[in-house]
Design a binder for these strands. Structure first.
Lengths: 140, 140
DNA sequence: CACATACTTTAGAATAATTATAAAGTAGTT
DNA sequence: AACTACTTTATAATTATTCTAAAGTATGTG
């Protein structure tokens, strides 16, 4: 049943290395997420809607959540939060920062921000990562 | 009914300037939040539980949400998000940053982080604020 | 300082995002 | 081809939050 054509190899590999069998639904989701030039910021609900609109046979909510979670745990997606109780995901997993512009998220390349001074981690801990959010407002 | 004793004046003033009448429930909530030495990080649910545990007559959930929202809109509380779809609030409204240490939040004074380089805001926008989150992990 | 009125409180219903469940289907191995 | 463990799905459950409408209260006015 599973069409293992080479075209999808990289998506299948992503799934396998996330501990998931490459089912058709999962391959399509993964392809939708990563088969693009620009990085994507999305919520699971947005992902579900944009994929299911084009499909006669809908993929279930649980499958979207499962797949996104596994890809995130494997490090293929980055999770972040705004102030609206919804999880956002970013296909750009390289260390980078964000502008938040009225609910819209814009990536900031890592090298656009550098620090002059950073605090030490508390004892027994070390720094895992540093994320900067720059909130924007209208320029009136 | 309302005991307008001086002891509570600063809390009553906070409420009034947030556009809220200083009812007993609101004064108690405001006092609980701001009548302390160290700043407090909390979710509405946590706030409700810690206050209601000690009370015979419980304050309703809606009143906690209303009061916290108004205090936040007036600028007396700062909202932030972790990756668990819950709103957190901080009684420290001065510009500052955070360590996130396995769900625990620790303030970082503003002057502990300085930038060497920051990006420009996109045209038509200006920077409202810059927030840094330093995620910690165990030091093994 | 009693009254009227607009603002509040409250319990409970409604909503939204997410997670859990369990029956029917499928991938991968033998 | 058959077996078994993993998946998908629809649906129910859960969690955080917001809404609603009835009963209660703060506050300005007289």
């Amino acid at each position: 049943m599973q069409k293992n054509n080479n075209k999808n190899k990289i998506f299948i590999d992503k799934l396998r290395s996330s501990g998931l069998r490459p089912t058709n639904q999962r391959v399509e989701i993964t392809k939708f997420l990563f088969n693009r030039k620009k990085t994507l910021h999305f919520t699971v609900e947005e992902l579900k809607n944009s994929m299911n609109l084009k499909r006669s046979k809908k993929i279930s909510t649980a499958t979207f959540y499962n797949t996104v979670h596994a890809l995130k745990s494997a490090g293929y997606l980055k999770e972040f939060s705004l102030e609206n109780n919804t999880s956002y995901y970013d296909t750009n997993i390289s260390s980078h920062h964000h502008f938040f512009d009225n609910g819209k998220v814009i990536d900031i390349k890592s090298d656009k921000i550098t620090f002059q001074k950073l605090p030490e981690a508390p004892k027994g801990r070390k720094i895992k990562n540093v994320e900067v959010v720059i909130r924007l407002e209208n320029n009136n």
